[in-house]
Design a protein around this nucleic acid. Structure first.
Lengths: 361, 361
DNA sequence: CTGAAAGCGCTAACAG
DNA sequence: CTGTTAGCGCTTTCAG
């Protein structure tokens, strides 16, 4: 009963050609940037196309060119704001290069193979795995078919695939140094997922540095990168009879939850009664209500590097995998007690590095 | 210099057929759920496919079937956690139905037509526009080619396209009633984008209800749904010599920012010194540090409805556009002063509705 | 510069 | 149940 006709299918190049009185290949040329067509032809084709509402069918183009201009992006669907920033920026960055994002969300603690199986059927030109693991079987297979894969904020033990990460180990160490300099005594770590290289590396840097300073006993809870898990973890920690005075969370999302619970449920003021440090430097951490002290992972630069790697792999055939580490800093805000020395102010951003005297290995 | 060979291209059905000693169409059948193939054939094909690492090419399938199983989803890239929840859930829900999300992020204050132009080239099976406008020209065109379009959390004035929204007007009204019942005097509204039907409807409900109670003067600032804009808006409001004691923000994201700034920069305790109410009911609002009072838009149900509409449109040809409104509630937490009556407790969720006596039109 | 013709990898009738 | 035969809409030689 609708007023306009029974929805005709989208116009094809053929129909445009007929209307313009030219061959179908002429139409194709007009819509191909590098191709040659006389101004006369071009004009007639464009007019016909306009009239018919013609839009080149990218599916057909993909089929023939063997390039879909699609990038498969796999992201954990756990509400972590860092992934939202990453995804938004990846999408924008790839868009400027003529690529679109085919999105796949995962349960982070499910095997990602079935999802990847799906992705590959779509013949994406490349794969970006945000904080997602990759079985070596799959890595091998992707390499075989020449599919570029970049792991974002994660890596495989084998270094067989490219990866872009932050300074996980160094960051963990720096956080330890910072908390030590702040005079803390009782340390705790809220881990992400046990399988995650990211969480493990941050913990290793943290723990080893503390050990070097004679601190062996570090409380530990697994937050699993989920909101619920983080809540449980922080509650457990703060309920301890000998509760920690310094808590390092494997990422900002969990750190924000920690701050919220510490203040809201335990009446502890972060930065005064206890110190909480995160990792990522997400936007929300800058809000005055949080004032999160954290080790930064510049998303912008990570995205930039990811796109570069993908593009380069797409160009050169046999590009070797790259292990890219983008450097961060310890960002000083108010959720952790500040040391007396070592803070640098640049504009409205404060960073911290161990004072020279202490820096000795 | 890589050890494994120079990356052979993915196997085709043809190659599998050859290896299995059957026709290419036999291979096709084996990989088509409803098709018939003898156990013998099936087995040989499957073996050959396994050996070659064959995966049906969905691009080719899309071309021939005229269905890409791709849903174009356009989302503003402004860091709003509500969109992250929506996107994650849309992606998951569509996945269970065999559809994938082709993601497009937009600047919300840019015209979305160029983006949509892109989307259509990919021959997506449907379009979901999250809080994104749609020119009537485009709406018309989508209707012409029979492309289902669902606006999520927004609608057009014309009601020409389907939409799924929350109870914007009613919610705005309910918030006004709540604040009135709480004994507030000086009201303010932080708008989203002026073009957004969502923001306008919420404001209309809010303002008209207040007007009916004799309150004409309502402070107003435009936050534009961006973090920076919201900060500016709330600072302006709280700097007023006659600062509001009740602030209604067009969405939760801006409300959280408002809470953060009120407490962090102005030393005002939300719920005591001033009341802040949002709209959406995002997860973060439940954190004890925020305890955000808000009018809910159940993302889950909105996503459900969206998927249903898309699927139905995909099945029946000439389905009329639907304007779907999913109902919410005023969720009582601590960021706004509570009235004496009208609060209902269900489990750990508190809601508010005008007491019967007051409910009269 | 232009048209004709040959596919990209797959599905869908159609005969056997 | 199986193989053969047309294409889906487009890019791309290849002659003209």
């Amino acid at each position: 009963m609708s007023s306009s006709g029974p929805t005709r299918r989208p116009a094809t190049a053929h129909e445009v050609a007929k209307l313009a009185g030219v061959s179908q290949s002429a139409v194709s040329r007009v819509f191909t940037p590098g191709a040659s067509a006389s101004p006369a032809t071009r004009e007639r084709v464009l007019a016909a196309a306009e009239q018919l509402g013609y839009r080149p069918n990218l599916v057909a183009r993909s089929l023939i060119m063997g390039r879909s201009h699609l990038i498969g992006v796999v992201v954990p669907g756990n509400g972590n704001p860092f992934y939202q920033q990453a995804l938004e920026q990846l999408s924008a960055a790839f868009a400027t290069q003529g690529y679109r994002v085919l999105l796949f969300t995962t349960d982070q603690d499910m095997p990602s193979d079935p999802v990847l199986e799906e992705v590959l059927r779509y013949k994406v030109d490349a794969l970006v795995l945000v904080s997602t693991g990759l079985s070596s079987r799959f890595a091998e297979e992707c390499l075989q078919i020449g599919l570029p894969v970049v792991m974002f904020n994660r890596k495989t033990d084998s270094d067989a695939s490219s990866s872009v990460t932050g300074e996980n180990r160094k960051g963990g160490k720096r956080v330890a140094e910072y908390l030590l300099a702040g005079g803390h005594r009782r340390f705790a770590y809220v881990a992400g997922l046990e399988q995650s290289s990211t969480s493990r590396d941050r913990e290793a840097g943290f723990t080893q540095c503390l050990a070097k300073h004679g601190i062996q006993q570090i409380e530990r809870q697994v937050g699993g990168y989920s909101a619920a898990g983080a809540e449980r973890a922080i509650r457990a920690l703060l309920s301890l009879k000998r509760a920690p005075d310094a808590v390092f969370c494997a990422n900002d999302h969990m750190a924000l939850i920690a701050i919220s619970i510490a203040r809201g449920e335990f009446g502890l003021e972060p930065g005064t009664d206890l110190s909480i440090v995160g990792f990522d430097d997400i936007l929300m951490g800058t809000w005055p209500i949080f004032g999160l002290t954290t080790y930064s992972q510049p998303v912008g630069r990570m995205v930039e590097r990811t796109v570069e790697i993908v593009l380069r792999q797409l160009a050169d055939q046999p590009a070797a995998p790259v292990q890219d580490v983008v450097s961060g800093q310890l960002i000083v805000r108010d959720s952790a007690r500040k040391p007396n020395a070592g803070i640098t102010v640049e504009g409205d951003r404060r960073t911290w590095a161990p004072p020279a005297a202490v820096r000795a290995r």
